[in-house]
Simulated scan of single mutants.
Amino acid sequence: MTKIWIDAGHGGKDSGATGNGLVEKNWVLAIAKQLQTELVNAGFEVGMTRTNDTFLELSERAKKANGFKADLFLSIHFNAGGGKGYEDYIYTSTPAKTAEIQKTIHKNVIARITKHDMRDRGMEKANFAVLRETAMDAILLEAGFCDTTDATILKSPVYQQDFCAGIVAGVKDIFGSGVTKYQAGKFSTSNDAISGKNIKGYLAAGTKVFVYKETEKTLNITTTKGIPGSWVLKTEVNTGKR
């Protein structure tokens, strides 16, 4: 199973950036927990740097992720300093694969947050410890600036949902939708999946999949990215029904 590590920045004695009633350590922890839920529901195994208001040194964060043998490290932050917009970072010297992963995450996040008037500040590189000391592909995401008009956007639950949705969509694009924990019935059409008719077989537990298309109640799941597959009920994947 693909493993994702979520690093909620700061914590404990380190509040991170503050402004306009926002405290970074609290905001990023809430986002980290939301991401954890959504990624687990998508079939990924998720590790967390912290799940409460705890301080950890930067090297300890990387060490925990390395011990987990994560496939991707996501460090969640927001900014201060008078700017505006979202940006993300990878280490100054990384394989081309890491840069491609950054592009995928960035594209998916921006696609969902620009409607909130959050500016795109681009993709950057930096010598941050959590990027330098992690053994896997690692990205640090800065969700906006707490000390400018971005603060109003950061406080919006809808923005927070879309920010998380962009990250999850990017992870799915990179790795597929994790794996199915339980078998799910495969159907020819979305309506067939809803009615339970014309079953084609079963998607075996542990299958690595990509989502080709999605409706309110169903997913078209494929084992080959970009190629249509079979329809399954959302309520069946990872629940053990049928």
Rank of each mutant, 00 (worst) to 15 (best):
K13E: 12
I153F: 12
L140V: 13
G206M: 07
D71F: 01
Y91A: 15
T18D: 00
E236R: 11
Q183G: 14
F68D: 12
I167E: 03
G122Y: 00
C146A: 15
T239S: 14
L35S: 08
D14I: 00
G178V: 08
M123Y: 03
R112V: 03
S93H: 10
I194K: 06
G196A: 01
T51H: 01
R50E: 01
T148E: 09
E24K: 12
A135D: 15
E133H: 09
P228I: 06
N20T: 04
F187R: 13
T51I: 13
D192Q: 05
L74D: 03
K241S: 14
S93K: 00
I113N: 10
G166K: 03
K64L: 09
V171P: 06
A65N: 09
F73I: 00
T180I: 11
D14F: 06
T54V: 15
N108Q: 15
F163T: 06
F175G: 02
T104L: 07
T92N: 10
K208L: 13
E38C: 09
G166W: 00
G144M: 02
F175R: 04
T215R: 10
I4F: 14
A8D: 13
D137R: 03
T149Q: 09
K213D: 08
D7N: 12
A17M: 00
D192C: 06
K213H: 00
S190T: 09
S190K: 05
D162Y: 14
N79G: 01
E24D: 08
R119G: 02
D173Q: 14
Y159D: 06
I199F: 14
L39I: 05
G226L: 13
K155D: 08
N108W: 10
W5R: 08
I221E: 04
A70I: 11
R242A: 15
S190H: 07
I227G: 05
M123H: 01
A70L: 08
T224V: 08
L203G: 04
T235I: 08
W231Y: 11
V109E: 04
Y159P: 10
R242K: 14
I110R: 01
L140M: 14
T207Q: 02
K103E: 10
G67D: 03
L58T: 01
V232S: 04
M1R: 13
T152S: 14
G12V: 08
G196D: 04
T92L: 15
T215W: 15
D162K: 12
F68T: 07
A62K: 04
V209K: 05
T2G: 05
G229C: 11
E87H: 02
G12R: 11
R112C: 00
K107I: 06
F187A: 02
T104S: 11
G9E: 11
S195L: 02
G226H: 11
T54W: 14
I105L: 07
S156F: 07
T223I: 00
L39T: 01
Y202K: 03
Q183H: 14
G81S: 10
K186S: 07
S93F: 03
A80R: 12
